[in-house]
Amino acid sequence: MFFRQAGIKHTDYGADRELFPIPADRYMLWGLLALAVLAPVLVRDLTLNSYLLPWLIWTTAALGLNLVLGWAGQLHLGYAAVMAVGAYSGVHAARFGLPWEAAILIAGLSASVIGSLFAVAALRVKGLYLALTTLAMQFVMDWVLTHSPDITGGSHASLQAPPFRLLGQRIDTDAGLYYVALAWCVLVTIFLLNLRRTALGRALVAVREKDYAAAILGVNSFRYKLVAFAASAFIGGITGLLLVACFYFSVSPEQYNVNVSIQVLAMVIIGGLGSIIGSYFGAALILLTPGIANGLFAWGSELLGLQLSPETLAHVPNAAYGALIVGFLIVEPLGLGKIYGNIRNYFLVWPFGYVKK
């Protein structure tokens, strides 16, 4: 068996509450972390800054949205708005002369404050009404950004970010920017992994399942929903700023419009609600699959000698990409993270077959 449980003895509460009690899980985690650290040596710079770097940043954004959507069960269609608040507040703080460490903290706090203010009004409603309220938040932020030249410089202007520095050292190499994104992604992942084991995490799950039942048990559903929105917005604000500092190098209103909110929402849903590894899978599918599909269709048409028009080559991969997403959700509606869980559970008892249905 690949995931052997022989010899694992839960003799105390600490052992029972371990994140990864099965050794195979720990070995896989350390192996993936080693590959992530060695990625600047193993892959080309183009792959590093065009694929791995944005994947880590958008994975962190998906993790932040998953906190309020997957853990607390609150629909949120305005996540790009809080990312925009963090990006603009952090860039303005850095341009004002504050250290980047302070700018990052300001980005998170400002996004958390704005997200909490909208949440106070949004959490008076539920379900689709909550989704429409958060979508209205996104539209309000879009209007503010396009009609506030003092903040953005104009509807079609870009605000240049100052050189990125941490601990007094300028970070401008591909490897340095990648390690910053990796560190932030790992930090958020560790936070969410441990959130499951805390009273806060259990309260959020109780609110997600049934807030009335949680209230009967003494859980203040409104307060915990507000905490979820604030914490999620804090992560989103810092992620929005790091997206500018490490990848875009400038910020404009178009980078955080409603399409971005839908994109992050798709990452969470396809990856799996409440699934941490699913957020990684969902971000990879949304970001990387279109480029891979375009390359495969162009290579296949050239190999078969097919004369396809540029319009066909532009649209057929998108159709195949959409069909792939639908196919994954048909196979497992709970997302890619659940597919991974099913495979892992199979090998957990392999080669015994008594668990087959």
Rank of each mutant, 00 (worst) to 15 (best):
Q138N: 08
Q138T: 07
Q138M: 14
V144C: 10
V144Q: 11
L145F: 13
L145T: 06
S148A: 15
I151H: 06
I151M: 14
T152A: 09
G153V: 05
S155M: 06
H156E: 14
L159E: 03
Q160E: 11
P162W: 01
R165H: 14
R165P: 00
R165K: 13
L166K: 04
G168I: 07
G168C: 06
D174R: 05
A175F: 03
L177V: 03
L177A: 04
Y178A: 02
V180K: 01
V180P: 00
A181I: 02
L182W: 04
W184I: 09
I190F: 14
F191K: 03
L193P: 01
N194C: 08
R196L: 04
R196A: 08
A199W: 10
L200H: 12
G201P: 03
G201S: 08
G201D: 02
A203L: 09
A203K: 12
K210T: 11
K210L: 12
D211L: 04
Y212W: 12
A215R: 15
L217S: 15
N220F: 05
F222K: 13
Y224W: 13
Y224K: 09
L226E: 06
I235S: 03
I235L: 11
I238F: 02
T239L: 00
G240Q: 02
L241R: 04
Y248D: 10
Y248E: 12
V251R: 06
E254C: 01
E254S: 13
